[in-house]
């Protein structure tokens, strides 16, 4: 049985050239993934906001949540009291071309929706994937507020988060495909 599978594979693969262009084949391995089955893992949000879920959260709600879930590592205002420079979330806008660049959410991150994606999948450090989507919107909003990018009365949702223009939006130069 193993032999017949190998022969079948060899016929279907046909060497390195075939690997460039996957043939429409079916070994019959795996089970169909329905949207309902994969929903708990299907949490990615793109820089342009594609994948942001329904829900909303206010900067005020985020401020309260930040104080209990985030401040002990990131500092009470995202700067002071952060456990290391890499954990600072705010400040540094305009320093990237200087002798002492500070890379924070406000100074360096090109897309606000990435903040939602990262907090939802990986934060808080001691309890990842424990926040509701509304709570993630709220905390993301508060971090943007700490950087002066949204007002204190802002409410963030899929549309408003994707609309936030980050200061370093055009600060990245992708390596050309030929050099990847």
């Amino acid at each position: 049985m193993r032999c017949s599978r190998l022969i079948l594979a060899a016929l279907l693969l046909g060497g390195p050239a075939a690997a460039q262009e996957p043939a429409n084949r079916d070994l019959g391995i795996g089970v169909p993934a329905t949207p309902a089955m994969i929903a708990p893992w299907n949490i990615d949000v793109r820089g342009d906001g594609k994948g942001l879920p329904p829900g909303h959260g206010s900067v005020a709600e985020g401020e309260a949540l930040y104080a209990t879930a985030c401040a002990s590592c990131h500092g009470k205002d995202g700067v002071h009291g952060a456990l290391s420079p890499a954990l600072r979330l705010a400040g540094g806008i305009g320093t990237l071309a200087s002798a002492k660049p500070e890379r924070t959410v406000g100074s360096y991150w090109p897309y606000a929706p990435t903040l939602f994606d990262y907090i939802r999948r990986a934060m808080p450090f001691t309890a990842p994937q424990s926040l509701t989507d509304d709570q993630v919107y709220a905390v993301a909003g508060y971090v943007l507020f700490l950087n002066g990018l949204v007002p204190h009365d802002a409410v963030l949702d899929a549309r408003s988060l994707a609309a936030v223009k980050m200061p370093n939006r055009d600060g990245f130069r992708p390596v050309p495909p030929a050099d990847r």
């Binding site: 793109r46 820089g47 360096y108 990245f172």
Partner: peptide, 21 residues
């Protein structure tokens, strides 16, 4: 996707303030 690990980390800041990605 422009994830955190390919924007805020693992990008190379150049002297002109822009980053190689």
């Amino acid at each position: 996707w422009e994830t955190r690990e390919e924007t805020s980390r693992y990008t190379e800041l150049q002297p002109d303030g822009r980053a190689r990605q």
